[in-house]
Simulated scan of single mutants.
Amino acid sequence: MSLQKYQTTWVNPKEYVGYFTFVDILDSCKFYSIGKNGEFELRLLITRLKGDTDENVFNLGFGVWDRQRKIVDDTIETRNNDMQQILATVADKAIEFLRKYPLAALYAEGSTVVRTRLYQREIAKIIDDIPIELRIDGLIRKDDVGFIPFRKGINYDAFLLSIK
């Protein structure tokens, strides 16, 4: 991708002890959003629910790291005017994971409808910069439409990233 990205650092999954009861953590990294509202440590997690029978679908999540509670809080808004850089960083790590595991798919959904729409708008802005081998599908829950190839101008409830 030609978009500016943040430098990431791998995080040992053992840092997420509170998560072990409900998910398996396959990958994690951290990076920092730096801007007018300060510096925020963001964490990206690729997980699978414990006991999930679909071995190739994983959850892609990210948010601000809460050091006290030792959780990734995906409800905090940094408002550092770096959303494209954050999403480019997340997309870069997603592509890296998918290239390593080409049969995998990554499910992503905002913590709120508003946040999902924000991600959708930001994806639409950079869709032409996304590597050609990356496939992005959007989920439409209404009328059980399901996943369809991402197109601008359609409201999605979630996204699925995979290698074509």
Rank of each mutant, 00 (worst) to 15 (best):
E55C: 06
E133T: 05
T21S: 15
I127S: 07
Y156D: 03
I76V: 15
K14A: 15
K70D: 03
V113S: 07
D92E: 13
V11N: 10
D27R: 15
V114I: 07
E96Y: 11
F150G: 07
F58Y: 11
V57S: 14
P131V: 11
V90S: 09
L134W: 03
A88L: 00
I148A: 12
L160W: 01
F58H: 06
T112H: 00
D52F: 00
Q68S: 12
F31A: 09
A94N: 07
D24E: 15
E109K: 15
Q84P: 02
I154G: 00
T78Y: 00
Q7V: 11
D129S: 14
F97L: 02
D128I: 06
I148M: 13
T8A: 07
S2M: 12
R99I: 04
D74T: 00
D129L: 12
I140Y: 06
A105P: 00
F147L: 13
G146K: 03
D73A: 08
L45R: 09
D74Y: 07
V23C: 14
I76A: 03
N59F: 05
N37C: 03
I34S: 11
L26Q: 05
I127L: 13
P149L: 05
L103V: 00
I130V: 12
L98W: 04
N56V: 09
A108Y: 01
